[in-house]
Design a protein around this nucleic acid. Structure first.
Lengths: 158, 158
DNA sequence: CAAAATTAAATTGCGCGCAAATTAATTTTG
DNA sequence: CAAAATTAATTTGCGCGCAATTTAATTTTG
């Protein structure tokens, strides 16, 4: 029906196919994770980014907004309203650092600390949903971390 | 200073560390891609999701909104306003399918088709920014596609 | 020490991303 | 064939995510 030469409209056209793009594979996987987490987090009235903040605080309570932002790669424009919602939900408290009133220190409430127990359950469910062995998960995660680092380091700008 | 047993507050505490989470690695990589694409797409007044729609249309012009949604994993609630903005920018046209007035057919304008040339340049820049070989990119992409499929297939719900 | 510069959060505005409700067209069925 | 069900797209509302601006506190410097 078509000749060999007519397979693609331009010589390298296939290179632009969605299925070939690493960025789209990452984009899709991020959405897939979000959708998998959603029903689990809905129970607790949490969104996925809010859950990430709690993960950070379970490791290290009492961080400033800036520090949390560095951990998650988010700025205060994203975190300020998100933290207010976490506070309204009763999982965290926020207070100005008396030693430097510019900073706001974020701390888990008793309710927020209690939630950590549930996180292990969620973790197990997610692990199961990925269908990956711990080894596979580790390798994929490390590869993505290397990729992220290289993309972030790139000074190419515009 | 600390005993062996006191290394972690609970036996499996380290499992919750952000750096250990595959989901967070994916989340961070998605943001890193977005930030890398942004200056390149800003030239053309495009956002990354808008660029994805164009990628889809360059492969197959004249799709319906629903079909585009299937390609990208997005619903009409996301696509409707996005497509209006692409239309306002002059890259696409939208018209009701005369054979089924429920459907809207999305087509590239001449300006939208012209943009395809630039996409090859962007692709090359991104490839460079990842610092990955074509082989590495392919492997990582395939691993992510398998992961996404398994997450999406999972019926676990709540 | 006071003015200028820097820093941390918060705020504003815009574009996703998704759930839920709405509108309009088509298909099913009774 | 008409009522009911289904389907496609739009709209509404909310929470990110980020750029840009604003506010307030601290640090630098002249």
């Amino acid at each position: 029906m078509t000749t060999k030469a007519a397979k693609f409209d331009t010589p390298t056209d296939e290179a632009l196919a969605l299925g070939r793009q690493l960025c789209f594979a990452v984009y899709s996987a991020a959405h897939a994770f979000n959708r998998t987490y959603k029903p689990m987090l809905d129970r607790f009235g949490l969104t996925y980014p809010q859950y990430l903040v709690l993960l950070a605080l379970w490791q290290q309570d009492g961080m400033t907004v800036k520090r949390i932002g560095e951990e998650l790669g988010l700025d205060s424009g994203t975190l300020s309203p998100l933290l207010k919602r976490l506070e309204a939900a009763g999982y965290i408290g926020r207070m100005r650092d008396p030693a430097d009133e510019r900073q706001v220190i974020v701390s888990l409430t008793e309710s927020g600390r209690r939630l950590k127990t549930e996180a292990f359950t969620i973790l197990a469910q997610i692990g199961k949903a990925t269908g990956c062995s711990l080894e596979e998960i580790g390798e994929l995660r490390d590869a993505l971390q290397r990729l992220t680092r290289r993309l972030a380091d790139n000074p190419q700008g515009d």
